[in-house]
């Protein structure tokens, strides 16, 4: 599913997860509508958790990245075109 566009402008924030977070998101990329002035990360994720019940208990353990950079805070605003990535605890090596 491509980004939601109107008049050529992206109007959604993409959310994807890895490992257990990906499974909790139903193995799919989500595109959530966002106002042009953005939405707080915690509010966007609460909306998503309401649609993906397995996500809610996982969220407190996740590190949140925005556009490949760690989010400074959950109160940070993301804007249409941004991408949030959910990282559950790491297990490399």
């Amino acid at each position: 599913m491509g980004p939601d566009r109107k008049g050529g402008a992206v109007r959604t924030v993409r959310v994807r997860g890895f490992a257990t977070a990906r499974a909790a998101l139903g193995d799919r990329l989500w595109e959530l509508p966002a106002a042009p002035d953005g939405v707080r990360i915690d509010r966007l994720l609460a909306r998503l958790a309401a649609r993906c019940p397995r996500l809610a208990p996982l969220l407190p353990t996740c590190r949140i990245f925005v556009n490949d950079e760690p989010a400074r805070s959950l109160e940070t605003r993301v804007r249409p075109g941004d991408e949030i990535t959910l990282h559950p605890p790491y297990s490399g090596g």
Binding site: A19, H87, G93
Partner: peptide
């Protein structure tokens, strides 16, 4: 470095 990698690098195994 290996101890840091295990907790700091976004890599997952199953």
């Amino acid at each position: 470095a290996i101890e840091r990698l295990k907790v700091q690098s976004p890599i997952w195994k199953s």
